[in-house]
């Protein structure tokens, strides 16, 4: 579904990504982790073309992201993305947040979009808040709306960039529960997260990044059981003691 081949990226002379390669097959859940500044966000943003990269190829469902002829908007409309800071549109009601892209991008009718949006809102347990505005919801609620907004586009896969790291601890689980459910339904997911409980529960593979390189790309059990690199061992020791 997502194929990343030898991707490198630099800002001026600063190398952010060096020769990164990995795959996410249909129905798989990949967790990407690593220390701050290791390039996780950059890598995941390359997948839907939010960040350009200088060499290598990324294909999503057979479409090359780096190809200048690719209609990036169209590709992005099929790839859901969830951000650390939710990024709901503050001037729109929750319902409008859920429907606007369905109407403006996919060309669905207002009624059809509302129907779909409210169904998904119900699914993330927030049906009662349809008429509110993002600023009137808690962080955890906003993030669940953001997930529903992405799902409303019927994405072929979902990208998550630290979806819980801006949340208060008591709100993390309500978001993770939604993500676990999504994973169990067979959604293809690439998640940047340090929630190792989530990784243990649903991930197929763990990608560990350090200084712009993919240091480990292991099946879950191998990663937690016996990570090969010293860096990954140290990293795990650090976050698991928290």
């Amino acid at each position: 579904m997502i194929s990343i081949q030898n991707v490198s990226k630099h800002y001026g002379t600063f190398q952010v990504l060096t020769d990164c390669s990995t795959e996410v097959n249909k129905g798989e859940v990949i967790v990407v982790c690593g220390p701050s500044g290791s390039g996780k966000s950059t890598l995941i943003k390359c997948v839907n073309g939010l960040e350009p990269f200088q060499s290598g190829t990324i294909t999503v469902d057979g479409v090359s992201v780096g190809d200048p002829k690719t209609n990036l908007s169209k590709l992005r409309s099929r790839v859901g993305m969830v951000f650390q800071h939710f990024e709901l549109f503050p001037h729109m009601s929750i319902t409008d947040n859920l429907t606007i892209a369905q109407v403006k991008v996919l060309g669905r009718s207002k009624d059809e979009a509302t129907d779909k949006g409210l169904k998904l809102l119900d699914r993330v347990g927030l049906k009662a808040h349809a008429a509110k505005f993002p600023g009137q919801l808690s962080g955890g609620q906003q993030q669940r709306v953001a997930i529903a907004r992405a799902l409303a586009m019927d994405p072929i896969c979902m990208l998550f960039d630290e979806p819980t790291s801006a949340l208060d601890p008591e709100m993390i689980n309500e978001v993770l529960d939604v993500m676990v459910e999504l994973a169990q339904e067979g959604m293809t997911m690439m998640c940047v997260t340090h929630e190792m409980g989530f990784a243990r529960k649903v991930a197929n593979r763990i990608v560990f990044m350090d200084q712009g390189q993919i240091v480990e790309d292991d099946a879950k059990d191998a990663f937690f059981g016996n990570p090969r690199s010293e860096r990954a061992r140290q990293f795990l020791a650090k976050i698991l003691t928290h």
Partner: peptide, 18 residues
């Protein structure tokens, strides 16, 4: 505006003008 707003719009499939 938060930088993520532009990214969020684009990620939903909006064109830059949209």
């Amino acid at each position: 505006l938060p930088r993520g707003q532009r990214a969020a719009g684009l990620a939903l499939g909006f064109t830059l003008p949209q």
